[in-house]
Amino acid sequence: MDWIFVAFIVFSTIAILGSLMVVLQKTPVSSAFSLVLVFFSFSGLYALLGAHFIAALQILVYTGAIMVLFVFVIMLLGQDQPTSDLKDSSLLFKGITLLGAIGLLNVLLQAALSSKDIVGKGVYTEEKINEMGGNLKSISEVLFKDYVFHFELVSFLILGAIVATVALAKRKNSLSGGVS
């Protein structure tokens, strides 16, 4: 049992438990902090897979930006009280949903297991990546060569998101000069 496998076990256990906590925690704040835990462990898993760039981005974008945003909104809305919304829905509804979810999990796991024997056909083996100068270099190679157009398109998406957020956050009758 090498240390990589041990690390995998630890990270994946934290990820699964953390995500369960996200769903089951009563107060949104606890959920948010469980989510941070999950993000961190996912970052570890990425690193284990050799995707160092993604691992770094995971911490920067998710933990650093998105989670801050979440916590900020929770603060803003005063959602720090425990809610009982989990218990509100009917047993039948929960049963059917859980059944569906388990079925889905079953199907997905079967699909995952079927990919066990796949032999990779791509050129970017570990040796090749090392030869090229590491993960970051090889990714930039692909990103700014093959995916440069998509990369530019994403900027439009972000621009759109900014405009949408501003429009949403604006007070309703600020245009007509009224105060609400």
Partner: peptide, 20 residues
């Protein structure tokens, strides 16, 4: 919204099973 989502999941599941 939740019930709609549930139905969506069930439908997606059955579609998935069918396709598989």
């Amino acid at each position: 919204v939740q019930v709609y989502l549930m139905m969506m999941v069930l439908l997606g599941l059955s579609l998935m099973i069918w396709v598989l």
